[in-house]
Structure formats: structure tokens, C-alpha cells
């Protein structure tokens, strides 16, 4: 493609669009987290957060998601230097750690339901499941995205020229991670 044009800022348009999207997502999660906070302690009946939130388990899943971010940057580095084997290893590791996180969340949700907290039980249930459910949905999309990249790598179509595709997926993944950093503190630790 000889006609490929240079952009006015020299920045790639897709990456710029994606940062704009991430900015937009800040307001999405900002609204969810704000709602969680203003409704904190307003439930007229239990279960309440400190009765039910499992800090040890969630600490492990938080650590798991942080490590997936490490795997993600290593995947990008491997793709960028053309190292196919390690690219696949780290992409698979990121997706796997994401799946583990979703597994923790599934465990957490089902145990809450068994203990009598559903999305309809009280305000805490509504805000908690909606906020963490939105986050979990984002993780699930990220896992599908990462697996798609993994398939492209096995097809031999994820060379260093496609590093930007991995970088953008990485931006998404890390953003989902930082949202969890906030949720972990705001929802779990600051009860």
C-alpha cells in the first residue's frame, strides 16, 4: 500500500480512537461506581457488604487480574519483537488468567445467591451485581478478544506489523484491570 497516509498528529487513528473510547468508559464506570457509593448503607434490609464480602478470595482474584496485565505487556513485547512462541504463551496466559478471574466471579456470585443476596434483594445487591457484572462483562469481551488474537497468531497472521492490534487489545485489558483496582478498594476494602 503505497498510498498509506500519515496522520496530522503522527498518531495512529485506531489508537487515538481507542483512547477516546477509554475516556468514555471512565464516565460509564464512574456513573456505576458513584451510584454504588451514594447508595452505600441505604439498603433497608440485609445482607450487608461486611456480612457477605469475602476479602481473602477477592484478594486472590485481584492478584490474578494484576498478573494478567503483566502477561499482557509481555505478550505485546513478544509480538513486537517477532517472537511467535512467547507471543502465544503470553497471550494464552493472559486469556487464561482472565478466565480464572471470571471463575472467581462466578463462584462469588453463586455463593452470594446461596447466602440470600440476589440482584433484587436490596440496594446493595442491585448496585453490587450491576457494577461487578458490568466489569465482568468487560473481562469476558477481553478474553474473547485475546483468544481471537491467539488464533490469528496460530494462523501466522500476528507478526510484528500487527503489534498495534495487540497494543490496542492490551489498552483495553489494562483499562479493565485499573477499573478493578478501583472496585476492589471502593467496594471490598472500604466497607
Amino acid at each position: 500500500m503505497t498510498h498509506a497516509h500519515v496522520t496530522s498528529t503522527g498518531l495512529d487513528s485506531r489508537k487515538l480512537a481507542f483512547w477516546t473510547f477509554i475516556g468514555s468508559e471512565c464516565l460509564l464506570f464512574g456513573s456505576l461506581i458513584s451510584t454504588y457509593l451514594v447508595y452505600k448503607g441505604r439498603s433497608v434490609r440485609g445482607p450487608t457488604p461486611h456480612e457477605i464480602l469475602n476479602i481473602p478470595v477477592t484478594s486472590v482474584s485481584t492478584f490474578d487480574l494484576l498478573m494478567s496485565s503483566l502477561a499482557m505487556v509481555l505478550a505485546l513485547a513478544a509480538v513486537a519483537r517477532g517472537d511467535r512462541v512467547w507471543a502465544r504463551v503470553w497471550l494464552a496466559a493472559t486469556a487464561f488468567l482472565g478466565l480464572v478471574f471470571l471463575g472467581f466471579q462466578a463462584y462469588e456470585f453463586t455463593s452470594f445467591v446461596h447466602e440470600g443476596l440476589t440482584i433484587t434483594t436490596n440496594l446493595f445487591g442491585s448496585t453490587f451485581f450491576t457494577l461487578t457484572g458490568f466489569h465482568g462483562g468487560h473481562v469476558a469481551v477481553g478474553v474473547v478478544w485475546l483468544l481471537t488474537l491467539l488464533v490469528r497468531s496460530f494462523q501466522g497472521k500476528l507478526g510484528p506489523d500487527k503489534a498495534l492490534n495487540v497494543e490496542i487489545a492490551g489498552l483495553y485489558w489494562h483499562f479493565v484491570d485499573v477499573v478493578w483496582i478501583v472496585i476492589f478498594t471502593v467496594v471490598y476494602l472500604l466497607q
Partner: peptide, 11 residues
Amino acid sequence: TNFYQVSAGGD
């Protein structure tokens, strides 16, 4: 859910 349910404490 209870987001706008006054009876559940919603605002």
C-alpha cells in the same frame, strides 16, 4: 432491581 424503588431505600 431496586435502583429507583423508594420502598427499598432507592432515591
